[in-house]
Design a protein around this nucleic acid. Structure first.
Lengths: 188, 188
DNA sequence: TCCAGGTATTTCGATTAGGAATATTACTAA
DNA sequence: TTAGTAATATTCCTAATCGAAATACCTGGA
């Protein structure tokens, strides 16, 4: 949240959510509204953000937040000093492949193909976002991440394609004789 | 959890946790103990799992669970019919790059290098796990996922390397003249 | 004038995380 | 033989988080 505010604009909770949805979609999840509004209050109490109620003519008021120097210092400290955590991945598609023994091979193929198509969609989205390359120096980093995202989803697509090939190879493989009791000895 | 049980062994909550930690580490998170023990009770109540207390000589008892036919049918249904959700990614490293304007360029490099090293470690781990390729047919799918994981982390490593190059390119880039007020017009 | 859709925030229950607490057993080294 | 620590096994508790719905207002178009 402080990271989003660190670009310098005044933002409402609603803005924060929309912007997080939009800008982090390729590499991070976006917190829920309840999370955001609660956190904004805590940030203000902690002195990391300041709010005021914006009352434009014939608009209902909204509370907008700006980051304070202390807040900027706090994100900066986090970005600089927090331990580099490994990325968190929850790959439902791979979980399904992992449970391949429960599915018909054709259904498994379909699932992987759907995932490949999803990756392709993400490539197009990232490419579209990367179009409007601006001259503003602060945007240089988000743009770098956009390029990374493009390549990431290209890799994801290629990986899915590879897996389809592996699946064919598995289907063609001569079946080894079943060992008696094999399934109960799995943990050795 | 049902997926883990679907391989056929009797497992305790503790086993479940350890096995989840070990077998899903490349592509999925592992639920917490509290989650697991609570869920096991619910699964039993729902008729998806059966438990008994194992009391070997001079061992303290432990409750072990097996999957029932209804349980097997439920995971199978999930694996087959549940909508193919996009993978969830929380890439803290990219979040940091995105906030690159808050860091010294050298620190950013260090962070990316650490991430590349992490990817390399994961490649080695996946390779090591893939070594013991078994003949047991049910293992074929986990092994496919292992191969996928290897390639996934290879891509992650290459992507990090690319990003280091991009970073150099950015540093070498002639700085555009700062536009007055540019930072406050970011949202247009 | 009506309705859909976007803006803006709050509320609530359910889920999940994650660590501490509690025991017991197994292994290792002094 | 004993002391210590690592591993096994489960429970408990608090805080974080989700996600969906509820509320309400504003705008634009049919």
């Amino acid at each position: 949240m402080l990271g989003l505010l660190s670009f310098g604009q005044e933002l409402s909770g609603y803005d924060l959510k929309k912007w997080a949805d939009w800008s982090l979609k390729f590499f991070y999840w976006s917190p829920s509204y309840s999370q955001i509004y609660g956190e904004l209050k805590r940030l203000e109490k902690a002195g990391y953000a300041l709010s005021r109620v914006e009352l434009t003519e014939n608009t209902r008021g909204k509370r907008v937040y700006t980051i304070t120097d202390a807040g900027r210092e706090a994100v900066r400290r986090w970005a600089r000093d927090a331990p580099v955590e490994p990325p968190v991945l929850k790959h439902g598609v791979m979980l399904r492949v992992w449970l391949g023994h429960l599915l018909e091979p054709e259904r498994l193929r379909e699932i992987i193909i759907q995932h490949r198509d999803y990756a392709e969609k993400m490539i197009r989205l990232a490419r579209a976002d990367a179009e409007g390359a601006s001259e503003i120096p602060a945007w240089a980093y988000p743009e770098m991440v956009l390029r990374w995202s493009q390549r990431y989803y290209e890799a994801e697509r290629d990986l899915a394609q590879q897996m389809l090939a592996d699946l064919d190879e598995l289907a063609a493989r001569p079946r080894p004789k079943p060992v008696p009791g094999a399934y109960t000895r799995l943990r050795e």
